[in-house]
Protein backbone atom coordinates (compact mmCIF):
# COMPACT_ATOMS: atom_id res chain seq x y z
CA UNK A 1 0.00 0.00 0.00
CA UNK A 2 2.74 2.39 1.03
CA UNK A 3 4.71 1.41 -2.05
CA UNK A 4 1.72 2.20 -4.17
CA UNK A 5 1.44 5.56 -2.44
CA UNK A 6 5.12 6.24 -3.13
CA UNK A 7 4.74 5.48 -6.79
CA UNK A 8 1.74 7.74 -6.95
CA UNK A 9 3.68 10.52 -5.26
CA UNK A 10 6.59 10.10 -7.65
CA UNK A 11 4.28 10.16 -10.59
CA UNK A 12 2.65 13.28 -9.24
CA UNK A 13 6.04 14.97 -8.85
CA UNK A 14 6.96 14.04 -12.38
CA UNK A 15 3.69 15.37 -13.62
CA UNK A 16 4.33 18.67 -11.87
CA UNK A 17 7.75 19.11 -13.51
CA UNK A 18 7.60 21.06 -16.74
CA UNK A 19 8.77 19.09 -19.77
CA UNK A 20 12.29 19.95 -20.93
CA UNK A 21 12.37 22.58 -23.60
CA UNK A 22 15.43 21.69 -25.63
CA UNK A 23 14.94 24.47 -28.15
CA UNK A 24 14.96 27.04 -25.35
CA UNK A 25 18.03 25.40 -23.83
CA UNK A 26 19.91 25.62 -27.12
CA UNK A 27 18.81 29.22 -27.61
CA UNK A 28 19.97 30.16 -24.12
CA UNK A 29 23.25 28.34 -24.70
CA UNK A 30 23.85 30.34 -27.87
CA UNK A 31 22.85 33.66 -26.29
CA UNK A 32 25.05 33.11 -23.24
CA UNK A 33 27.98 32.03 -25.40
CA UNK A 34 27.62 35.18 -27.48
CA UNK A 35 27.48 37.25 -24.29
CA UNK A 36 30.71 35.65 -23.05
CA UNK A 37 32.32 36.31 -26.43
CA UNK A 38 31.09 39.90 -26.28
CA UNK A 39 32.58 40.24 -22.81
CA UNK A 40 36.00 39.05 -23.96
CA UNK A 41 35.83 41.27 -27.02
CA UNK A 42 34.75 44.24 -24.88
CA UNK A 43 37.59 43.69 -22.44
CA UNK A 44 40.08 43.57 -25.30
CA UNK A 45 38.57 46.70 -26.84
CA UNK A 46 38.85 48.60 -23.55
CA UNK A 47 42.45 47.51 -23.04
CA UNK A 48 43.40 48.63 -26.53
CA UNK A 49 41.56 51.93 -26.43
CA UNK A 50 42.33 52.98 -22.87
CA UNK A 51 45.96 53.70 -22.19
CA UNK A 52 47.46 53.08 -18.80
CA UNK A 53 50.70 54.94 -19.39
Amino acid sequence: MSQKNQITATEAEQALEPPPNYALDVLLFIIKTILIAAGVFGLAWILVNVKFH
Binding site: F29, K32, T33, I34, L35, I36, A37, A38, G39, V40, F41, A44, W45
Partner: peptide, 13 residues
Amino acid sequence: MWPIGMLGGYYAA
Protein backbone atom coordinates in the same frame (compact mmCIF):
# COMPACT_ATOMS: atom_id res chain seq x y z
CA MET B 1 29.87 27.46 -22.95
CA TRP B 2 32.73 29.47 -21.46
CA PRO B 3 35.63 28.19 -23.59
CA ILE B 4 33.56 28.50 -26.76
CA GLY B 5 32.58 32.05 -25.90
CA MET B 6 36.05 33.03 -24.76
CA LEU B 7 37.76 31.66 -27.85
CA GLY B 8 35.09 33.19 -30.09
CA GLY B 9 35.47 36.59 -28.43
CA TYR B 10 39.24 36.36 -28.69
CA TYR B 11 38.97 35.46 -32.36
CA ALA B 12 36.69 38.43 -32.99
CA ALA B 13 39.04 40.73 -31.09
